[in-house]
Amino acid sequence: MTEILLKIGTRGSPLALAQTHEVRRLLAAANGCDESRFAIVVIRTTGDMIQDRPLSEAGGKGLFTKEIDAAMLNGEIDVAVHSSKDLPTAMPEGVAIAGYLPREDVRDALVSVHADSIAALPPGATLGTASLRRQAQVRRLRPDIQTVLLRGNVETRLRKAEAGEVDATILAYAGLKRLGLAHRATAVLDIDTFLPAVGQGAIGLTARTNDAATHLALGRIVDADTGYALAAERAFLAVLDGSCRTPIAGHARVALGRISFRGMVLRADGSQIFEVEMNGATSDARKLGAEAGHDLLSRLPAGVLG
């Protein structure tokens, strides 16, 4: 019988499983053994079970992670694979972020049978999404567009948009690429006009804080530059106490030991945006992100943060 080296926990959606199989492949290659030495454990989360309302109304951050965290602390799994934008800003005691895989494309993608851009959507078009950030950024560009709740996995949302149940939807381009569905994107939205969510495009790996052997194994596959970028983005979000109830966007770029960060808070209807940009050394990534958050926080009118 094959000895299992690590048990990897994940949600059961096609995208979550695709990400987890990629982690298992990389772990096997980096540790010089067969993929069968790494068991995949599927865990159903509260976020997966809630489909009839926005997650912002059901508790926000942590709905896709708390059952997985509990399984880790109970010893049922050793590693967890997450879409990084689902990770809460404050991790539960005993669970630590071990790092991130090299980041995929961070951009959002428009899917529509009616138009090849947000500007070209028909007057009063309906856009299906559960993301307050996407709603606010669309309304900023097109105040006439009506947003409606659209939950479900990537394939479900694609099908509903392509069947005309809504005029358009917006999805993370990274998810489409990981599922081999990039060709289904009608247009990829430029970061300068449509800033992504904090953590978008990055696969995050968590482990028990005191599990040195697992951290060592994961250290062979994680990417340092993605770690710097996410440190800045997550520090920015933490200062703003970002939850699913406030439209917040943030993105850090890393090159040649330097990091450039841009963050944004929007009113829910897109009528106002508040932005900040900062640059610095990657060694100061977390400090830079926090400073950007404090700078923006000092300029926000009362009532903007939910």
Rank of each mutant, 00 (worst) to 15 (best):
I118C: 04
E165H: 10
S283Y: 04
A163K: 11
R299K: 14
I43T: 12
Y100C: 09
R140N: 03
V106L: 01
T193D: 13
V111I: 15
I77W: 04
Q135M: 14
I8W: 05
L176I: 00
G306M: 11
P122C: 04
G270T: 07
G175N: 13
A130Q: 14
G47Y: 04
E76S: 08
L266A: 03
K177C: 14
H215E: 06
D52E: 15
P88Y: 05
D241A: 13
G47L: 03
L297A: 10
S84G: 04
L141C: 05
P122V: 00
G75T: 07
L132Q: 14
R267S: 02
P102R: 11
L179R: 02
T147N: 10
D241M: 09
T10L: 04
A70H: 12
G199F: 08
N74A: 15
A292I: 10
M49Q: 15
R140F: 11
A163F: 10
A125M: 09
R157W: 10
D86N: 10
V42F: 01
V154P: 06
G263K: 03
I43K: 00
I4N: 00
G124S: 08
T20H: 07
E22Q: 11
G124I: 11
L158Y: 08
I43D: 06
M264I: 02
L266W: 07
D116W: 02
G175I: 02
A29N: 11
T126L: 00
L149E: 09
I50H: 03
A255V: 11
A182P: 04
A235E: 06
L300S: 05
G99S: 06
G242R: 07
K61F: 08
H114V: 05
G250M: 00
P196S: 10
A285W: 10
D108T: 02
L55N: 13
H21D: 11
P14F: 08
A281D: 14
P301M: 01
D269A: 12
R133E: 06
T282L: 03
M72W: 09
V23Q: 09
R44N: 05
I50G: 12
R299W: 04
D116C: 09
V154L: 12
A30E: 03
T129G: 04
R234N: 09
G99Q: 10
E67M: 07
T89C: 07
E233H: 04
F38V: 00
I191Y: 02
G306F: 00
A119M: 12
A285F: 01
I145S: 02
L149V: 11
L17Q: 13
L26G: 06
A125F: 12
S112W: 04
G199C: 02
L17K: 09
R25A: 15
R37V: 05
L171H: 13
S271A: 15
T226E: 02
E93H: 13
G12E: 08
F64M: 08
G180E: 08
G60H: 06
K7T: 13
A174L: 01
A18M: 06
L158V: 05
G270K: 12
V111Y: 01
I221C: 03
P123H: 11
G128S: 09
I203H: 06
A119Q: 14
Y173T: 09
A231I: 01
L73Q: 14
